[in-house]
Nucleic acid binder design. Sequence first.
DNA 1: GATGAATGAGGATTCATTCAT
DNA 2: TATGAATGAATCCTCATTCAT
Lengths: 215, 215, 215, 215
Amino acid sequence: MPSSPADESTGALKSVREEQRLMTWRRIVKAARRVFEEHGYGQASIGDITKVARVNRATFYLHFANKAAVFNEVYAEVREQQSSHYWAMLDEGLTAGTKDALRSVLDRALAWWEEQAALLPAIHEAMASDLEVASRWKDQLDQLAGELHGYLGQFPEEERDARRLRVQLMVMQLDQLCFRAIVQKVFVIDRDVLLDVVCDLWVDSLQFSRESGTS
Amino acid sequence: MPSSPADESTGALKSVREEQRLMTWRRIVKAARRVFEEHGYGQASIGDITKVARVNRATFYLHFANKAAVFNEVYAEVREQQSSHYWAMLDEGLTAGTKDALRSVLDRALAWWEEQAALLPAIHEAMASDLEVASRWKDQLDQLAGELHGYLGQFPEEERDARRLRVQLMVMQLDQLCFRAIVQKVFVIDRDVLLDVVCDLWVDSLQFSRESGTS
Amino acid sequence: MPSSPADESTGALKSVREEQRLMTWRRIVKAARRVFEEHGYGQASIGDITKVARVNRATFYLHFANKAAVFNEVYAEVREQQSSHYWAMLDEGLTAGTKDALRSVLDRALAWWEEQAALLPAIHEAMASDLEVASRWKDQLDQLAGELHGYLGQFPEEERDARRLRVQLMVMQLDQLCFRAIVQKVFVIDRDVLLDVVCDLWVDSLQFSRESGTS
Amino acid sequence: MPSSPADESTGALKSVREEQRLMTWRRIVKAARRVFEEHGYGQASIGDITKVARVNRATFYLHFANKAAVFNEVYAEVREQQSSHYWAMLDEGLTAGTKDALRSVLDRALAWWEEQAALLPAIHEAMASDLEVASRWKDQLDQLAGELHGYLGQFPEEERDARRLRVQLMVMQLDQLCFRAIVQKVFVIDRDVLLDVVCDLWVDSLQFSRESGTS
DNA sequence: GATGAATGAGGATTCATTCAT
DNA sequence: TATGAATGAATCCTCATTCAT
């Protein structure tokens, strides 16, 4: 039965066996990522993955139940990284209330899309066809919103829910824009222009630092 | 070679032949739609489509080159309908400048997502994995923006590009929100609340009827 | 029912209909030849032929029963031409009894393989897989042998059968050699060398002009 | 990737696995041979082969890339056998220089065509349509010629090339004759007559044991 | 006589998955 | 634990052939 390697359980070192297991597990996940980047989600086959991982087909099933399972792992790593590296300072940026602070946060965020460009088609594809994946994406959005203590604190209790929702909507919008503009390039727009426009829009939409505003 | 049935050619009546052809063509497109609704894009097979259409597999290839080709047709119909039925009054709504007018337009728009709910996963899936489809989606967004004469006329020449872009971004955002909330239901939110929030957000973002502003 | 256009029957002119029929018949045969040249025999499809002939698929069946039937027509034309243009002087050449005369006949024969190179793979393929075609090839060989009056007359009655057979074997050999050397080019040999070797071999094998011999 | 089972590798006994693999490999080749015998090359389908081999269709692809690949194997076995069993004594026969010796060699050769009759149409078909196969046939012809040390040694250095070529031409001729006469039977001729005629022809053509000659 | 449309049958591949080893 | 071998089920696509027009 496939099991995530996160059964550190006792803490002691089961050493050899356990370690070997973890190694092949990682090989597979790493290979899977490469395959998803190259073929997207639907077109990626388990055969592709095991071929890249230089692992036997049957070995795959020892670690994962199916394609969706590996994808979860790959996607989890991406989300983890996105949260910790790129959105970490969102609250600060929003709280600061200056356009510059915001722009710097958004600039950082853009970098993420640029880096992950290769994998994003697979993610969006999976998010469209697999509710499980879409759910997990929503979870991340909720988690993100849950960390906006500084920003939300500025607003009266009763407004906070709406504010939180707005931020989520803006992030969602940014995600789409980046996907179409940076990854797929069907939305043709210069990076700086994109940043400007989005920045201005966030300022108007989130009305942060009410007094300073846009004007 | 598969050809769209729009070869009215002479205008006269090749009647019988032409009509029969058109009939099976429609059967296939209709069946394809049902299959895409049920299985999504990637999981839909041509066999499924011909089975539902009660047509021979080879007949399919007489009318369409492949799955992508039928999907284009299905998607074209959807866009056509979306443009003409739902977004037709967007310019008026934005130009009117009142929150009520906007809300009524958005309400109408929401109806579209509700009606097309079944097909949307397939569309989003295709949009994620097929650049061709993504391009056509962008075209529609451009066309939409190209009809905002009333609204854009309110702004000085030099601001219009940015304004147009903003509208597009808001539509894109709405599209995502509806997909996650209405279609996939991973974004749990009451229809009225959704409408309220989006409406307010558009008011702030599009700053229409500059004097009335946010109130 | 498909019928060869050779029903000249009454001799009078059935004019229009008959002529149209002949025209499409020729279109098809011509197209078929091109297709056989390009794809060989087995890989050629009726669809290919009608596409090249710019004729409807069903029309094909009005003229020919199947692929084999058109091929026969094409092959018949080729044999006709081969007999009349290239082997016509074989008897003279053999009768003359000089190496030069022989060489000139063989040189002419070689030209045939060079000209028909494109079609030959299809012919050899058909000859290997279709007994009917192989039979017709043998018929031609017999006809060829049947015209060697001058050459065979040199030999006493009782030797003639064996002599005739020998000529057929040498022609068969030449056919193979040319196919492998000129058409397929797997038998690498210079044209002149080929001619020399074959010529010498015929001289020894056919022992023509018994007195002059090999020298 | 399909690989010939000739990976003896370590030499030790991977026994079980290796043996099983070899077994199914043989089943397939054997079945393929039967199918090629029955349907020829072009008409043989992989489905036919796997049905006869009582093996899953996918299993076939585990061992061979496509129809051409199995055919190569079948053909290789045939050539192997032809070389070792039937042509092995050609040099001796030619060197001996007596008609009897030659006849005995040719008699043996004939046996090969008689035994392989069933498979030969497929081989000739493949040789006509597949340059790869034709090449391999030529290789065999070259190998054959390369072993005529005794016979060629009789001739002065400068004549040897031409002599070698002559032998190849005669073998080629024999191959054709046997195919048409023994396999296809479109060339109707009694076995003994055939042998006599060919034998005499070889004597004249190869002029072995120069002094004794034909007379 | 010629055609457009439709069909049934079959062929090549590929995949996810499961054993015995 | 990892693997080689095998499988059943699909999928796409093409072809020869036949009608109604």
